[in-house]
Amino acid sequence: MKCNSKLKIISKNLILVPYMEKHVPKYHEWMQSEELQKLTASERLTLCQEYDMQKSWREDEDKCTFIILDRRKYELHNDEIDSMIGDTNIFITDKDIGQGEIEIMLAEESARGKKLGQEAVTIMLLYGIESINLKRYEAKISLTNEISFKMFKKLGFEEESRSLVFQEITLARNVTEEWVISLKAQYPYTVQDYIM
């Protein structure tokens, strides 16, 4: 999505930056993992296909993605690639009602178990509400991804359906003023210009 292509979002522990070509080789390396493919319901792509996908996420008006950086590591070394820990996305599924599907992937095992996924998702939820005008969210979680299921439940999402065919649970949450206030209180952030 072009609207986020020149922005970065900074929170206590994370920096979210637009998904750029320079990030693709490391992202592609992550996605060779069968575990990540299963957890994200993704297929293995060639490096060329991964570059095409990155371009699609950057240009298409119904997709918004950020690469998640470990802020502490980035501020020590000033190296985005070395600081990458995952990504978070919104796919706009119904523009008329302002509905988006939110996704999170923490690819680096060292980043897991520290509530960084929850921080990234919260920031992305708020970005979608404030910048894309989303009113409702869905999250589709693999039946085996108990950690993501629990995280979205903590964020106030409710189970809407289960698909044995796709092996996933759909969780949903309508945006309310009280929820937005609660999210902002948990993870304050700032939006700044992203200089490449």
Rank of each mutant, 00 (worst) to 15 (best):
A107Y: 05
F152R: 03
S131H: 07
D94R: 04
I68E: 00
K22D: 12
K22M: 13
T40D: 03
L69R: 00
L116E: 06
I132Y: 02
S131N: 13
F149C: 14
A41Y: 06
S131T: 08
R112D: 07
E50L: 05
L16Q: 01
T88F: 01
C3V: 09
N78M: 07
G117K: 01
Q167A: 14
C3M: 11
L47C: 06
F91K: 15
S182M: 14
S56F: 14
A139R: 00
G100M: 05
I81T: 05
Q118C: 07
Y19D: 02
L164W: 11
L76H: 12
G100A: 07
Y137C: 00
S142H: 13
Q186Y: 15
E101K: 11
G98S: 06
E178G: 11
V121P: 00
A139W: 01
M20C: 07
V180L: 05
H23I: 05
I67H: 01
M1S: 12
K184W: 05
L16N: 02
E138C: 15
A41S: 08
N174E: 13
R162E: 15
L76R: 08
R112L: 09
R44H: 15
G113H: 10
H28E: 02
V191D: 05
L134T: 00
D82W: 09
K2G: 13
A172W: 07
S33R: 04
E108Q: 09
L106H: 03
E75A: 09
N89L: 12
V180W: 09
D52F: 08
I97Q: 13
K55W: 15
E178W: 14
I147T: 10
T46L: 05
L116P: 02
G86Q: 00
F166P: 15
T144V: 14
V24T: 02
E177P: 12
G113I: 13
M196P: 13
V180F: 06
T40M: 05
V121T: 01
R162V: 10
E61W: 10
Q37P: 08
E103N: 13
I97V: 13
K12W: 12
I67D: 00
N133W: 03
G113E: 08
I102R: 03
F166G: 15
Q32E: 10
I92Y: 04
R72W: 15
G100W: 03
K8R: 07
S163F: 10
W30P: 00
K6F: 10
I129G: 00
